[in-house]
Design a protein around this nucleic acid. Structure first.
Length: 900
RNA sequence: GGGCGAUUAGCUCAGCGGUAGAGCGCUUGCCUUACAAGCAAGAUGUCACUGGUUCGAGUCCAGUAUCGCCCACCA
């Protein structure tokens, strides 16, 4: 136990050791039968693709602070880890691999593809789990889940069947964002808007009854004209009023299409006429529905023009675009072409523009669920968002809720449990002709009842949107739909901690599905963390390549340093944070500062351990109160008042503030002052009291800091208590502040003492006294005599004073440097030749500053409004300050006279 | 076009009614037996701008500007 510790803390030696220890001993394994109020969370499951990024490190460390705190406070804690199958992301990875082999997924088939996907998942999940463990997160690994585990698949199927049986699942025609490259519908979130330099083509559509007249319509996608079924104008637009109801002849197609009136059209933009392509544009789709226009789909799934687009059938959409333009030009119907910058939605993974495409998809009617969630939010503020302002974002989205397209034309994921009846080898024409069931046998049973004995079935090949399974995550991970012990004990979750970017996609889906399927809001609080931005304040993104690799910083500074830096150095309340980073040296000043803090703790602990004579805090026992010196009582007061505040910050999710409070307690109060104050007493090996205080304060500091820096605190605590890995700091009780030990008056006395010491140190430097030399000092004060007397030896030690005269009246000494601390006068007698000019300049400088403050306070006190209306304690404070400043001025003035 | 944030020391950020703080950086002096990843001392700010409320405003209100984010996007 007593081998000396190295003077530099090495996180790489200790961190893996404790991570392994925590895991092997199962300290974070929840026991639903154990006592304690439940505190439950599920980890937002990272995708089984790629690596952990800075956002993960940030948004997972924050809740870990809370979880570790709650555990130490005696709550029955569970934090369930897991990973997400991420249909689209995995498809991207695997299809890219296949492409390199010159193949597509269709070449190898569904089964072989899924085999590859599972293999990928095994590999990738291992990587991610390893990285999560490196962050020191106190997750319950025995409950590790994956969104495609059999149990979770069962939950997905059960949820789908329940929703279908309630009539909330249907198939419908809808404009989806279609990615021709991957031939699947993609959700809005999977679309990436890019600004593109394009053109705006203006076409003439001749009036049917008089082809010499025409309307001009503009488009950025000329090929869509093949599917035009109307031209729209604003109902009040005088220019076109008389044309409403007439028809134009669609060029190239020779189709007569009506001119309709719709308020959507902005008369001030372009010609005020809009071509309407209901099957290929979201707005046009809405207009088409309003006016019962035909919807003509002109595209094949691969992005080529279909039969409806005759005569351009078979051409790629971009080739068709050129042909259309050329045709209009040839026929004198191209009014003009303008260069035009606009945003084009690109498919994230396909890398090509998505095409709004009319197709039949599966939908979930979430309007009722959204209403229920809105009601819960408005009436009960449930769930409660932290920071609160996100509530509006959440409810705003629920108010504008749209049907949720839940089908994806992919293979990796939960295949939709729906079967189509086949009668006489034919699918029925009715799109709603399907059966939904948990198993194929049950599907047959249902189908036979509905469609007769001869029916056969064909399962829908599509998989569900990944968010469908992650929407069940807070309860599917706990065993739902079974009423398991875990589910009963830990559902609903206490807290959901995640980023604002997925409030819509994930949080809202969880609340909607959760309230509908379980009857309960899936979590009480939602903590929304900001983004980690790069050193220039920009959002880190794959496309910009400006990500900062957390693993690199972990390798350089260790886990505790990164955790602490992310939370303390840079966090605001739910605000984005910016991480200082030097790309050439791959260093971060913020993380380095946190590493230095760890090192400071390490060395302070070395000092304490060195002085404990191989005994533990427990064997030293509590100090006898009657033996405590002022310094002991002071550090205990600081410890307990700080602990009170730290607990308050944790209870209100102000983890950054808590981190800062502890920084100052440890570095300033404990290291800079208490340890220095206690050193003289430690020279006597028989002095027990300072050793007892050091031991118990250190132990409590370690416990207080543990949620932020779990590894170093565990390492030191194990040595300090000689626990010998029988238990862990992470399951010890969090320090309970004792209000009787908090002594504000004493803390004030120490503040004055510190000021006096600093003034003496400053005077020594001004007077050019060598750092090591001890000098006599006179401290003069009327009102603080009794305060400073018991602290006299501290001042003497820390200011290197040979002889300290503490007096009520100042003696007349001429050769002297003077300073003031409050109303306390400090005199440093000078020997030998003195630079009178420099002393004078310093005095004049001090005086000037004081006079400025005096006049400011004086004018305030001269204001009758202030005197009449300000609260008495403020008035008192001002008067006190004024009198103190006046005393200071008098002292300095007098000394200035003496010099002259 | 709507909504939301931010704007405080050279840099990154706290403070959110009583007259400005931290870390990094900078200056000076120290290898003082826990720590040079350190110790001590020091310099640095019309708290974006304009009004308002108030005895008193980085702190509350309104507006302006700049930056950023989200949502909706004019074909």
């Amino acid at each position: 136990m007593s081998e000396p510790l190295p003077p530099v803390y090495d996180p790489f030696l200790t961190e893996p050791k404790w991570q392994q220890f925590w895991q092997e001993k199962g300290f974070y394994q929840a026991d639903p039968r154990a006592p304690g109020e439940s505190f439950s969370m599920v980890l937002p499951p990272p995708n089984v693709t790629g690596n952990l990024h800075m956002g993960h490190a940030f948004s997972f460390t924050l809740p870990d602070v809370i979880v570790r705190y709650k555990r130490m406070r005696g709550w029955n804690v569970v934090w369930v880890p897991g990973t997400d199958h991420a249909s689209i992301a995995v498809h991207t990875v695997l299809e890219k691999q296949l492409r390199q082999e010159g193949k597509t997924r269709f070449d190898i088939g569904r089964e072989a593809f899924l085999e590859k996907a599972w293999a990928w998942k095994e590999y990738s999940q291992g990587t991610i789990i390893g990285q999560l463990q490196r962050l020191g997160l106190s997750l319950d690994w025995s409950r590790l889940r994956f969104t495609m585990d059999p149990g979770l698949n069962r939950a997905v199927i059960a949820a789908f069947v329940r929703l279908a049986e309630a009539g909330l699942i249907y198939r419908g025609e809808y404009l989806v964002n279609w990615c021709p490259a991957t031939q699947s519908a993609v959700s809005d979130i999977e679309v990436d808007d890019r600004e593109v330099q394009g053109s705006l083509w203006h076409f003439r559509y001749p009036l049917t009854e008089d082809p010499s007249q025409y309307v001009v319509v503009a488009t950025t996608r000329p090929e869509t004209m093949l599917g035009d079924t109307a031209v729209a104008v604003h109902p009040e637009d005088e220019r076109y009023r008389h044309w409403i109801g007439k028809t134009v002849t669609l060029p190239l197609k020779n189709r007569q299409i009506p001119i309709i009136a719709d308020p959507y059209v902005d008369p001030s933009f372009g010609s005020g006429c809009v071509k309407i392509t209901p099957a290929h544009d979201h707005n046009d789709f809405e207009i088409g529905k309003r006016h019962h226009l035909p919807m003509i789909n002109i595209l094949n799934p691969d992005g080529t023009i279909n039969e409806a687009g005759d005569p351009l059938t078979g051409l790629d959409r971009f080739v068709a675009r050129q042909r259309v333009v050329a045709w209009f030009a040839e026929h004198g119907l191209l009014e003009k072409v303008e260069p035009y910058t606009h945003t084009v939605p690109y498919s994230d993974r396909g890398g090509v523009p998505v095409e709004p495409l009319l197709s039949i998809q599966w939908f979930c009617d979430v309007s009722g669920m959204a209403r229920a969630c809105l009601q819960a939010s408005v009436e009960d503020n449930s769930p409660r968002f932290i920071p609160e302002r996100w509530t509006k974002v959440y409810t705003g989205w629920l108010e504008k809720i749209k049907p949720w397209c839940i089908s994806r034309q992919l293979w990796w994921g939960h295949q939709i449990p729906a079967w189509y009846p086949i009668i006489d080898g034919q699918r029925l024409p009715d799109p709603q002709a399907f059966v939904v069931a948990e198993t194929e046998e049950q599907a047959y049973e249902k189908a036979r009842q509905k469609y007769g004995q001869d029916v056969t079935l064909e399962r829908d090949p599509d998989v569900l949107d990944t968010w469908f399974s992650s929407g069940l995550w807070p309860f599917s991970t706990l065993g739902w739909p079974d009423e398991t012990e875990d589910y009963q004990r830990y559902y609903p979750n206490s807290l959901m901690s995640t980023g604002f970017d997925i409030i819509f996609f994930w949080v809202a889906r969880m609340t909607m599905l959760g309230t509908y399927l379980t009857g309960k809001m899936p979590f009480k609080d939602v903590y929304i963390n900001g983004l980690v931005r790069d050193e220039l304040g920009q959002k880190m993104s794959k496309t910009k390549g400006n990500g900062i690799d957390p693993l690199e910083l972990l390798d350089t500074y260790g886990t505790d340093a990164l955790r602490y830096a992310l939370i303390k150095e840079v966090i605001g309340a739910g605000q984005d944070i910016r991480l200082p980073y030097d790309r050439t040296s791959k260093t971060s000043s913020a993380v380095e500062a946190a590493r230095n803090f760890a090192n400071k703790i390490w060395n302070a602990s070395r000092f304490v351990l060195l002085n404990l004579q191989d005994k533990t805090p427990q064997s030293w026992g509590s100090p006898d109160p009657s033996w405590l010196e002022p310094a002991d009582r002071w550090i205990l007061s600081r410890l307990h008042s700080c602990a009170t505040q730290v607990i308050e910050t944790l209870e209100t999710y102000h983890m950054g503030e808590g981190a800062r409070l502890l920084y100052s307690l440890i570095w300033d109060d404990f290291c800079d002052w208490y340890i220095e104050l206690v050193k003289p007493r430690l020279r006597d090996p028989d002095q027990a009291t300072p050793r007892q205080v050091l031991a118990c304060v250190l132990e409590q500091i370690l416990a207080l800091l543990h949620p932020w820096m779990p590894h170093i605190t565990e390492e030191i605590w194990q040595r300090l208590t000689q626990a010998n890995q029988t238990t862990s700091l992470s399951v010890q009780a969090y320090p309970q502040p004792d209000a009787t030990l908090i002594n504000p008056a004493l803390e004030q006395d120490f503040a004055l003492m510190i000021q006096v010491i600093r003034t003496i140190r400053n005077l020594r430097i001004e007077a050019g006294i060598p750092p090591g030399a001890k000098v006599p000092v006179i401290v003069q004060t009327h009102e603080h005599l009794s305060t400073l007397r018991p602290l006299q030896s501290y001042i003497q030690d820390l200011a290197k004073v040979s002889e300290l005269s503490l007096v009520a009246e100042a003696p007349s000494v001429s050769q002297v440097a003077v300073g003031v601390a409050g109303s306390v006068q400090i005199l440093l007698p000078l020997q030998g030749i003195v630079d009178v000019g420099s002393l004078q300049r310093k005095l004049e400088k001090d005086l000037e500053k004081i006079h400025k403050e005096i006049s400011s306070i004086q004018s305030r006190l001269d204001n009758p409004n202030f005197v009449g209306k300000a609260p008495p304690e403020i008035l008192e404070k001002n008067r006190h300050q004024l009198s103190e400043l006046q005393q200071q001025a008098a002292i300095l003035q007098q000394r200035l006279h003496h010099l002259q």
